[in-house]
């Protein structure tokens, strides 16, 4: 076997530096990252990247910040496996490898001028935060904006100070619920679906963006449809264990679609009949 270095390999890494970290919950940690070449990541809200720790491995992680206005980007990582646990041990100044961004994000041009109903379950807030920040950065391009948030328990809420800010803002409708309250919790208790009937929307001009654990989708979609939101205005983002990001390795395949290239954001209309999607 002969070997040579190739420039256009799909597996080439960009060096990147961790600028800042913050432990958000027991399991989730926030990272602000900048590419070593000084360039912005140039992503769309909803796209994902591959994060590499050399000698340990690579994981797909969604970008949690808006592309507008800054050169660094954020991710929020739950420690669940080998790579993510190792990533949690890193601090500001440490170097990591990046590939991407990959996939199709939220169709922001299609969303412009419309009302938005953003529904996040648990860690689903991470990819949706990129959309929320994008919308807030370009607030006048969008109509009414609703954010519904759900998680298992209050101590699992991510981005606490930002949630408080969203709650205060006059140009946002914000509601949050937990499955199980703790003694200090004064807010809603119940599944995220309980928040949907109460939102005041005009279904015909509302786009819903939904990200959460697999179990959440069916119930939320049912509520959205009964609310009258058209199927093509429901956007979902799916989690899969992508290995390549290039539409080859087969890990993320949903019937004939590759989540890493054709998604991770899909129009509900396009994937509703794909049995392995949700």
């Amino acid at each position: 076997m002969e070997k040579m270095v190739i420039k256009d390999s799909g597996y080439k890494l960009e060096k990147a530096k961790i600028l800042r970290t913050k432990q958000l919950t027991d399991k989730e940690k926030f990272f602000e990252i900048a590419l070593g070449n000084g360039q912005p990541l140039d992503h769309e809200p909803g796209q994902f990247i591959m994060i590499s720790l050399l000698g340990i491995g690579e994981v797909p992680i969604s970008v949690a910040s808006s592309p507008s206005g800054r050169d660094s980007f954020d991710v929020c990582v739950r420690a669940v496996g080998k790579v993510t646990n190792a990533l949690h041990k890193l601090k500001a100044g440490d170097e990591i490898g990046i590939r991407g961004p990959y996939g199709k994000g939220f169709p922001t041009r299609e969303l412009q001028g419309n009302d938005l109903l953003i529904i996040a379950g648990g860690l689903g807030l991470a990819p949706l935060r990129s959309l929320i920040h994008y919308v807030l950065d370009n607030r006048r391009d969008f109509g009414k904006v609703h954010i519904l948030l759900g998680c298992k328990q209050p101590k699992e809420l991510l981005f606490g100070d930002e949630l408080e800010e969203w709650n205060q803002r006059a140009d946002l409708y914000y509601a949050c619920t937990v499955d199980r309250a703790d003694p200090d919790w004064a807010g809603n208790v119940g599944l995220i679906t309980t928040l949907i009937p109460g939102v005041d929307i005009e279904p015909a001009r509302t786009f819903a963006a939904v990200v959460g654990p697999p179990v959440m989708y069916n119930f939320v979609i049912k509520e959205l449809l009964s609310k009258g939101i058209p199927e093509r205005q429901i956007l979902l983002s799916f989690e899969r264990n992508m290995k390549c990001g290039n539409g080859k390795c087969g890990r993320c395949q949903i019937q004939n679609l590759y989540c890493c290239q054709d998604g991770p954001v899909f129009h509900y209309e396009k994937i509703k009949n794909l049995s392995e999607a949700m």
Binding site: K3, V5, I6, K15, L54, E95
Partner: peptide, 21 residues
């Protein structure tokens, strides 16, 4: 097949490679 050769550690160095014959 090898996709990447690297040196891990504080300052990483990684090169994408292709093996062929």
């Amino acid at each position: 097949e090898t996709l990447l050769e690297y040196r891990a550690g504080k300052v990483m160095k990684a090169e994408a490679v292709v093996e062929y014959e």
